[in-house]
Design a protein around this nucleic acid. Structure first.
Lengths: 336, 336
DNA sequence: ACGGTCCGTTGAAACCTTTCAATCTAGGAG
DNA sequence: CTCCTAGATTGAAAGGTTTCAACGGACCGT
């Protein structure tokens, strides 16, 4: 209830309003005696600084935001953990916003954050080329694209080479002797899904195997549930045409697929080898530990946060395009 | 760059500043012609309303926040999805903050949110009795406790009966013939861990089995990694003393435990039956589908959001304490 | 005792929006 | 032709903080 302001505190402590502000922002400039008095008054009145007013006057905010694609995917929350670590070190708060893969929601959040004049925004966008991002930048808000890149420059980005990841997965499977492989993923509107496919195709071509033997299995989303569905379809194929291995666009799909196979009495990797993508904790924890393309998730977030902080603090900031290298982690699901 | 304000827009459109504000807030009160002119000017200048100033004057904010315990646990992000659904319907933005089980971080976020004068806060607190929460309430910010309850009233809470959940798990295991059961969970500072234990003990006593045969296996955290460690310890026990079933305080532990057993060549449930808690998507997706105590996660969040919205909008708001009933979902990990 | 420093404190201006009473305009009624 | 009304527009005040130039007093050296 006691909606008290600096003015009230000043009155209670018998000092001027400017002094209260000094206690708040430059405690060293105020004598210990008065400082104590003011602090006492603040405690008595239950004073809470009004951040809106502070921000209005000071023009600067103490918060960062990460707009992510899917909060229920552990990959993104791990990235967020990396961001948060750096944010905390810089004494900034991090707000996470979940766009749930919806461009409209994403725009809503970005607008709101822009109005709120946050210090900076990290975003894993639905579409990295979308003008929505340009709007934010034009409004003068530092922005870093995470886990994607942008063809036009003018923005920092931190990503992992998804094409390379796709290559690694397919090369691994071919090394293990597979000659008919499925790529499970979709919808194609998702950039990661496309890039990993491109890498997979590239690697496949170099093997000289018939192009038709790298088969696409489209899914409606990158979820466990969709993975199960893909499993049903997979087992529905006649044995001759059935792939001996699957490369899934992310681990959620892979886990769903894995589950469906096991509960249908098939064996992994004997009946179907599986490679996932992201190497989330649940991949290693699956009862048939999942081979997966590992991305440096925490590092991804941390580096992105560093770039963002540099952009806000350093006038000579240069936009950077950081690309990390993925790594294949081979486990039982392909090694048997 | 064009850090433009209402004043600039007004000048550009040749109207007064109040009119611009009307366009923004009560478009119906302004004639179509001028409205068009103003909107054009806003577009030309790239005007973005300054939310801080708006909030300072209007005293009201358009955002809700959810401070959660562990963003990497799918349970909480599912709860968040339920909240968000309701928030979006009320045209409010939801910011998620991850306390990572740290009371200090939690306090940091709550303070920040209070300064920001958010419209309301939902929180799954590290400690629901903590005075930190009282501070927020005293500052006049509506707050709802999620997935926990509070002994003192004065606050809405939405939770699931964790004691009952503990009972259900143990009763199920006893029904299946187990006479020596482990409770895997910790640290005991976490309320859920304690409550589920209390329920487990209660159910155990009623069976008349020797009290010593319900054994506690303490873990350092509720993570997959800790689950694996618990598995090591479990297999380290002499066969005579080894439990035939384990009830884990959450699914992450259960999945880790499951994995360790399988990779050590044991069979689930023959060698050890396992019940988890939360029924996250990965539980059903585990290669040995996990029996688990299901909580209505989305509903939990949705109901909490409703209570919060009622508190902000309805002067006659009564604090409510909603307790949902959990449900045991039996799968292969206990049924064989 | 005097001038000069330095530290602590002050008060007013500025930040940008919303609100509301007051003013203006056009058009209809008498 | 005048008066009234309803609707559109205006202008100033208010909201809480930070900033900064200015001020006052204490202390030092001479």
């Amino acid at each position: 209830m006691p909606r008290s302001s600096v003015k009230d505190v000043a009155a209670a402590a018998g000092v001027s309003l400017g002094t209260v502000s000094n206690v708040l922002n430059r405690p060293d400039r105020v004598s210990p005696a008065t400082r104590a008095r003011v602090e006492q008054a603040m405690a008595d009145l239950g004073f809470v600084r009004n951040e809106s007013a502070r921000q209005l006057r000071a023009g600067t905010s103490r918060t960062l935001a990460y707009v992510l694609l899917d909060a229920t995917n552990p990959f993104f929350t791990d990235v967020a953990a990396g961001i948060e670590e750096r944010a905390e070190a810089a004494d900034l708060s991090l707000f996470m916003c979940n766009s749930s893969n919806s461009a409209a929601r994403e725009k809503g959040y970005l607008d709101h954050l822009a109005e709120q004049r946050v210090q900076g925004i990290l975003v894993t966008p639905v579409d990295p080329e979308s003008p929505t991002l340009d709007e934010v930048i034009q409004r003068g808000i530092p922005l870093v694209v995470v886990d994607r890149t942008r063809s036009r420059p003018g923005v920092c980005s931190v990503s992992v080479d998804d094409e390379l990841g796709g290559r690694l997965a397919v090369e691994h499977l071919v090394d293990r002797g597979h000659q008919r492989v499925a790529y499970v993923g979709g919808p194609a509107t998702i950039g990661q899904v496309r890039d990993r496919w491109v890498g997979a195709v590239g690697a496949w071509r170099e093997t000289g195997l018939p192009e038709a033997d790298l088969v696409q299995m489209a899914t409606a989303a990158l979820t466990v549930e969709e993975g199960r569905r893909a499993g049903e379809r997979m087992l529905g194929l006649p044995t001759r045409r059935r792939p001996t291995a699957a490369f899934c666009a992310n681990d959620l799909l892979a886990l769903g697929l894995l589950q469906h196979l096991i509960t249908s009495g098939r064996r992994v990797p004997e009946d179907l080898a599986i490679v996932g993508y992201d190497d989330i904790d649940f991949a290693a924890a699956a009862a048939v530990p999942l081979s997966s393309v590992r991305q440096p998730r925490q590092l991804l977030g941390a580096r992105a946060a560093e770039l963002l902080l540099d952009e806000t603090a350093n006038p000579a900031h240069q936009h950077e395009r950081v690309v990390f290298t993925p790594e294949l982690v081979a486990r039982t699901s392909t090694l048997g």
